[in-house]
Design a binder for these strands. Structure first.
Length: 307
DNA sequence: GTCGAGGTTAATGCAC
DNA sequence: GTGCATTAACCTCGAC
């Protein structure tokens, strides 16, 4: 578990690209209880999946840490959230700065939401042609749909987990709505939902916002749009659950009807067979009687001849 | 100040 | 070398 490698110092931090605040940070502002390095050389370049997963874990732990009201330090005054995450990452072999973590998180969320949006909104199109899941798409197909081309399932799952936990912890204190506290995979990936082509290639409904009794006089159109989106997504989710239930109900009804028809058909067949057997029995009986009477008659005739 | 969302830019790698 | 795709990083805005 422990990372054997020390922070790999990049050989040279020559040509920079818009370097964030802290290429080498004294970390004097670190308010976490974790590692506080005197100076750090942050890794550049693309994020590996392992780094990404570490970041996601850090984010989840940070959310949990902050969600607990009673714990020692939910958020110390002045504490920089992303500094805590940076420290966690640093302790787990991901040598990135807080800004890098923040940016990466933003970009991850964008991709995640695109995929989730696609999965949930297109899943219903089974009527005409089968829904092509993001995960079974080719690269170029993903591109066609303006989706990230290489989101890995592990990362998606991990993000999903974090967002679900967050959503649940946000909802629980206010109102207990067990209906949507499902397991991580459920919400976005149950692709059989029924989103009625609602429109708007907008970003995803993050959460079904519950506390919105605030005054909305000063909200500009953008804010309104966001709220409408949230409400819309809540309605969509409810509608999809309802549609799912109705659909399965309808399917069960149809199945039962088919079973009844099948039974009826079988009963008729049996009836017919029985009739056939009866008819044949009677015919045989008549033939036997005829034979018998013929035999009796010839017997009588013989008797008279002898006398 | 923090956070999320969204737009944008710059660096990088790859194919031709 | 050029064009394109990808992605890290920057920037702005609004909400809290």
């Amino acid at each position: 578990m422990s990372n054997p490698l020390p922070p790999p110092p990049p050989p040279s931090t020559h040509h920079h690209q818009h370097q964030p605040l802290n290429i080498i940070t004294p970390a004097t502002t670190s308010a976490t209880t974790m590692t506080s390095a005197p100076n750090r050389e942050y890794r550049k370049g693309n994020w590996t999946i392992q780094e990404t997963l570490t970041l996601i874990t850090a984010k989840r732990l940070d959310d949990e840490r902050r969600a607990k009201p009673s714990t020692s330090s939910p958020s110390k005054p002045g504490e920089l959230r992303w500094k805590w995450i940076e420290n966690y990452c640093w302790d787990h072999g991901c040598f990135r700065s807080q800004n890098q973590c923040n940016d990466k998180w933003d970009n991850l969320l964008r991709d995640y939401k695109k995929v989730r949006q696609y999965q949930s909104s297109h899943s219903q199109s089974q009527s005409s042609h089968p829904f092509l899941s993001y995960w079974s798409m080719e690269r170029h197909q993903r591109k066609l749909h303006n989706l990230p081309t290489n989101m890995s399932p592990e990362v998606f799952e991990a993000l999903n987990d974090v967002l679900q936990r967050k959503l649940n912890t946000q909802q629980q204190p206010h109102l207990h709505q067990p209906s949507f506290s499902q397991s991580p995979e459920q919400l976005p990936l149950k692709t059989d939902q029924n989103p009625p082509e609602v429109d708007a290639p907008v970003t995803v409904s993050e959460e079904s916002d519950s506390s919105e009794t605030e005054s909305s006089e000063n909200l500009d159109s953008k804010t309104k749009r966001k709220k409408v989106r949230k409400i819309g997504s809540s309605i969509m989710r409810s509608a999809s659950v309802l549609a799912q239930t109705l659909k399965s109900c309808e399917e069960n009804k149809e199945k039962r009807h088919q079973q009844v028809m099948e039974l009826e058909h079988r009963r008729l067949q049996i009836e017919e067979t029985r009739n056939e057997v009866n008819r044949k029995g009677i015919t045989d009986l008549v033939a036997a009687m005829t034979n018998l009477s013929g035999a009796i008659q010839s017997l009588i005739a013989n008797h008279y001849d002898q006398t």
